[in-house]
């Protein structure tokens, strides 16, 4: 039966051009980010290799002083924009994926336990979720970022920036997972296979994670995909606001922040290309999530 289900999903995938295109875009960008150290023309973090004379080179042209050519131009310090973006994408994607991973582990575990145990555990977790849902998640993320920055000594804040980002976005995003998993668990735990497992004397932990969890994977998958797009945008927003990835290790959001400063002087490319890349990533993940939601929804079949 497992094979049949998979081929059904795959059929829906290859007959949906939007899903195919957005997944190809995402995979290409993801691979480019993954292999950035090998494919990027220069190392943007190696301050010694930068030539200030190359600063503000427009795209598609050679620098007027040095004659060096940069496809998408350079920033104020003469950093090649293609390289900076490849490395920036690496940070954006890494933070996004790890943050969603954290939110997923946290939310799924809390949701499973709340739904399975019920009682006061359920009440506490769900009230906490309600209170957190009162606030937009970007606000929670900023707050966690602020608290985390306060707990880290000032001289280590830049080094810990990535971890702080993952933590703040992950902690702001677990509620969706918990609520969905809880309501599915409430349905599943009454079913016969769970009762059978209980009669066989399996432990609660085993029932939750080995029996119930595999049955509710598909809604979790959908939420994870949609959360990934939101997490990537949240990361860019925090970095743009200056409380995310530092300028020494810029993500796409940091590059956009830097680019905004030069917009008035007419150096538009420092802003435009990172912004377009961010949009492309967010859009492709979003469209993938939409497709996955429809494809896994039994009501739409």
């Amino acid at each position: 039966m497992g094979n049949w289900w998979q081929s059904d999903l795959f059929y829906s995938y290859r007959t949906n051009p939007v899903a195919v295109i957005s997944s190809v875009v995402f995979v290409v960008l993801g691979l480019a980010a993954l292999f950035a150290p090998w494919i990027s023309p220069t190392n943007p973090f190696d301050a010694g290799s930068l030539n200030l004379m190359n600063g503000f080179t427009p795209p598609f042209s050679a620098n007027q002083f040095t004659g060096d050519y940069f496809v998408l131009g350079t920033d104020d310090q003469g950093r090649d924009l293609v390289s900076a973006m490849l490395y920036g994408m690496r940070i954006s994607l890494m933070v996004g994926i790890l943050a969603v991973g954290l939110a997923m582990v946290l939310g799924v575990t809390l949701g499973l336990v709340a739904g399975y145990r019920g009682g006061w555990v359920d009440a506490v977790v769900m009230r906490l979720a309600d209170v957190q849902l009162t606030f937009p998640s970007i606000l929670i993320a900023m707050l966690v970022a602020g608290i985390a920055r306060g707990l880290v000594p000032p001289d280590q804040r830049e080094g810990m920036a990535t971890i702080i980002l993952i933590l703040s976005i992950g902690l702001s995003d677990w509620v969706q997972f918990a609520r969905t998993v809880r309501s599915s668990t409430l349905l599943e735990k009454e079913k016969e296979y769970v009762q059978a497992a209980r009669v066989l004397g399996r432990s609660h932990l085993a029932i939750m994670f080995r029996h119930i969890l595999p049955g509710i994977v598909s809604p979790v998958l959908v939420i994870a995909t949609i959360s990934l797009a939101l997490a990537i945008i949240a990361e860019a927003t925090l970095s743009f606001l200056g409380v995310g990835a530092p300028p020494t290790e810029p993500s796409l959001g940091t590059l956009i922040r830097i680019g905004q400063d030069f917009l008035f002087a007419g150096e538009w490319w420092i802003l435009l290309f990172p912004a377009l890349t961010l949009l492309l990533i967010a859009l492709s993940v979003n469209l993938l999530g939409d497709w996955l939601r429809d494809a896994l929804n039994p009501k739409l079949k």
């Binding site: 927003t237 956009i256 917009l263 961010l278």
Partner: peptide, 25 residues
């Protein structure tokens, strides 16, 4: 809907403040 807020802001600044010079940024 898919544009993040800060990009909308920057886009508006670019068009209406930098290029057209109509509104303060």
């Amino acid at each position: 809907v898919s544009l993040p807020t800060f990009l909308i802001g920057i886009l508006l600044i670019w068009v209406f403040s930098v290029e057209l010079g109509w509104l303060p940024s």
